[in-house]
Design a protein around this nucleic acid. Structure first.
Lengths: 377, 377
DNA sequence: AGCCTTGCCGAAACCGGTTTCGGCGTTGAG
DNA sequence: CTCAACGCCGAAACCGGTTTCGGCAAGGCT
């Protein structure tokens, strides 16, 4: 056995404070070649069981941990999940993030992977950032949240043959792994719940139409109305309300219209919370005069008054599953087999109930409460 | 010039779908040695300005991006910031996280660094995870949030000579870079504000005593009381309330005591929000009968009723500065020179004001509102 | 003119792993 | 008994960069 160990340890550079056991150290300690140790640790079939065990034991004893970048240079794998967030996005994203990251990084850490997070300032910057991470090989694959109907990030990953998993469904999902919540079912159930209360004029305030989920939720609204036997009035379906303020505006528009709805379903809690404020501002008793149901399950919904009835999404679980799916997809190379749907859970609170009056009387009430200036609008 | 380019591109392996321009490609395109190109790109002094420019231009033209792991293997640097979160922590951490991560990853991305996030399930798991990231060289340095008075993570990083920056101050800060908010000043100002309203019995509900910030905030409370010329009653200082529920409990204990305070300062908004609920539950009008001031500036504080007067921390800016400080510290190697303090900003809302009655009468009011069972406790 | 700098670059070692290739000894079949 | 097949491992190439070392040419100095 050569004296390579001694050579390895102190001899090389005076710089390294901590000696770090390398694969060579393990090999020397056993009188094996480092290539053999590598293959033993990576379960190559041409290593005898006896050697494999010896190596595993010695590696553990020496506390050997392979240097991730050194592995990556040859294998291209870093054991890291990429996540690029766009920060200019609506505040709807905010509450979402905490639980989501919690779930993702928890699942990643469980597999001894890490999560690589980068932030982009705009839509095109997101693509640039993903590309940078791909080129620098800082991530083995990506989680793509908030999918759009036609998502350029998907094209980018496909073009570079980089694995990815979608949080949401996309128009063309060939070769895609994805996970999603059945938002359409939740919205449909919201409509049915309201119809069950006796509401007949039910409005829908949707999010941005570029997002895949908005389209599905819209379909869910239509399905619910159809199943309840109610006609859909075009003027009672609004789009693009992603923030509290936008939700408030949409709500005012609906309530001030000729024949207002007695119930409103929102695609996002943020918008619904804005809606509660707007309705209250018009002198209405939310939960009686006007019923409101949201979707998301953000914690603020429990604090607002009256507390928001909503469909809660387990965002943490979603992040967890997405990470697991991505890792599995990278390992197996078969993304199409990894697709999952989950359901939102109804959280009953105080913002909905049977209508206290018919739309016509509601219109009168609202008009009466308007100040003179407001009437001019 | 040799025909290395052709050899490089297609010839090597049939596997690589995307050809990826390597440093060799750039070198070949210019008829230079790859070592020369590397030195040119890294601003070595022995490269002529003319060559440096030629290389920079050609590299940009070819879209060359160095492979991060390949660089790391020699330099030990990955351009990535490590952040290990412990998920068992109190819910006080939750709202904090979103903005914080936003700030950190934004600053990191601006320097073309990335953020590497891992999650740990317990305190000791945090240390293991940091150690794993160090051993695998997945992070060049760490941001250590929520510092404890005596923090084992600091010892770990020191022992392994890994750069780090603290969010918070620590007992022994030799060789530490840190950033912190003057929480003690905020708590002191809260006391002075209440004293200015005419309060004389002021209580303090602190967070966990293991955290460095709790100690400072306690000092701030004492400083405020001293400056206001008020005596500190030991029974009016409570510790360990990090959650809404714990805050509610502490508040009930204070209010049911013989001579209750007319104002309470909380070290955390979460506890303060719990306190608002508890006080309201005892039939008190928060903002009149009992004044409450929090600290943190979490969004829920604006939604609760009455809205919480608090000291808001710009968590996003904190994350941003921490990332910048860490990067700078890694580059310069002089952490001690990188220490910064910032201030929380008073956010006046409705949960505080002049006292409506003296402590003795307040006690009577509270006692009157208690149900029979509650009185038995 | 001769010599010593100095500026600038090529060549090669190196980093710590992974992967390929070939060879040795053993075994089994012919 | 011979030869092929096989199991198992050593040796070396390789990955894509960084860093060291040495040498050539131009320039300054005596």
């Amino acid at each position: 056995m050569p004296t390579a160990t001694a050579t390895c340890r102190g001899g090389r550079k005076g710089r390294h404070r901590h000696p770090r056991t390398t694969i060579q150290d393990v090999a020397d300690a056993l009188g094996l070649a480092k290539g053999t140790v590598s293959r033993a640790l990576n379960d190559y079939p041409d290593i005898s069981e006896r050697t494999r065990l010896k190596v595993a034991r010695k590696a553990a004893q020496l506390g050997y941990r392979p240097l991730a970048p050194a592995q990556a240079i040859r294998t291209g794998r870093t054991r890291s999940i990429g996540l690029v967030l766009s920060i200019d996005a609506d505040d709807a994203q905010k509450p979402f993030l905490t639980d989501f990251l919690d779930g993702v990084s928890r699942a990643a850490s469980a597999e001894h992977w890490t999560l690589t997070v980068a932030t982009a300032a705009s839509e095109s910057d997101v693509l640039d950032t993903i590309l940078r991470l791909i080129d620098e090989r800082k991530a083995d694959g990506f989680i793509l949240p908030r999918t759009r109907v036609r998502d350029p990030r998907v094209d980018l990953c496909r073009r570079h043959a980089v694995p990815f998993v979608l949080y949401g469904r996309v128009a063309d999902d060939r070769g895609c792994a994805w996970y999603d919540i059945r938002g359409e079912a939740a919205i449909r159930d919201a409509v049915l719940r309201l119809a069950g209360f006796g509401h007949r004029r039910i409005a829908f305030v949707n999010g941005g139409s570029q997002y895949a989920c908005s389209r599905l939720r819209h379909e869910g609204f239509l399905a619910g109305m159809a199943k309840a036997g109610l006609p859909v009035q075009a003027e009672l379906v609004l789009e693009g309300a992603m923030t509290r303020e936008a939700g408030a505006q949409a709500t005012r528009a609906l309530l001030r219209s000729g024949l207002p709805p007695t119930a409103i379903v929102y695609a996002l809690d943020a918008a619904a919370i804005g809606g509660i404020g707007a309705a209250a501002g018009l002198g209405l008793s939310v939960g009686r005069d006007i019923s409101i149901i949201g979707y998301d399950g953000i914690p603020e919904g429990a604090l607002v008054s009256p507390a928001l009835t909503t469909f809660g999404v387990d965002t943490c679980a979603a992040g967890k599953r997405l990470a697991e799916i991505l890792i599995e997809s990278i390992r197996s190379g078969r993304p199409e087999e990894l697709r999952e749907l989950s359901d939102a859970r109804l959280v009953v609170r105080q913002s909905d109930g049977p209508p206290s009056m018919a739309p016509a009387r509601l219109a009168e009430t609202i008009h009466k409460n308007l100040t003179t200036e407001e009437k001019d609008e």
